[in-house]
Design a protein around this nucleic acid. Sequence first.
DNA 1: GAAAAATGTCAAGTATGCTTTCCATAATTT
DNA 2: AAATTATGGAAAGCATACTTGACATTTTTC
Lengths: 67, 67
Amino acid sequence: MKNRLEELRKERGIKQETLAAELEVSRQTIGSLENGRYNPSILLAFKIAKYFGMSIEEIFIYEEDTK
Amino acid sequence: MKNRLEELRKERGIKQETLAAELEVSRQTIGSLENGRYNPSILLAFKIAKYFGMSIEEIFIYEEDTK
DNA sequence: GAAAAATGTCAAGTATGCTTTCCATAATTT
DNA sequence: AAATTATGGAAAGCATACTTGACATTTTTC
């Protein structure tokens, strides 16, 4: 699964630390998501989507058989 | 978070075991999701949405502060 | 180019998602 | 009502999501 987190965050001109605080997760979590080390839980995905005013599907790109 | 899994599955007249097979998860996973014992991973949520031809948001209802 | 700020990333620990196995209860069929 | 089928749910184990803490590297600012 790919995601547009880094792109969306930079569009808004905020740093990882700020986004992390807004979403109530650690900075490392944001970094790990941006760099594809793991996928978010569905709850975090919902929080992120709400934060950016978009749907989960617009931010996270599901790819068949991708882990 | 709530979900409409049981409702959607029953609309289609299929049993948990069949849905589980289609989604390539165990029957217990489906049962656990229907009965709210835990939330799906985002990958499973995508699979479920695809299976029912709906968006994640139409199936899984995010509720502020809900675990 | 030195200092400061932002990001990358690892390690160890806790929490949650999912599996298999197993048994109990409910619903359906005959 | 007896047998079969479907669902509920617990336990133990493994995988992944997320945390804190630490340190290295990159980027920005002065």
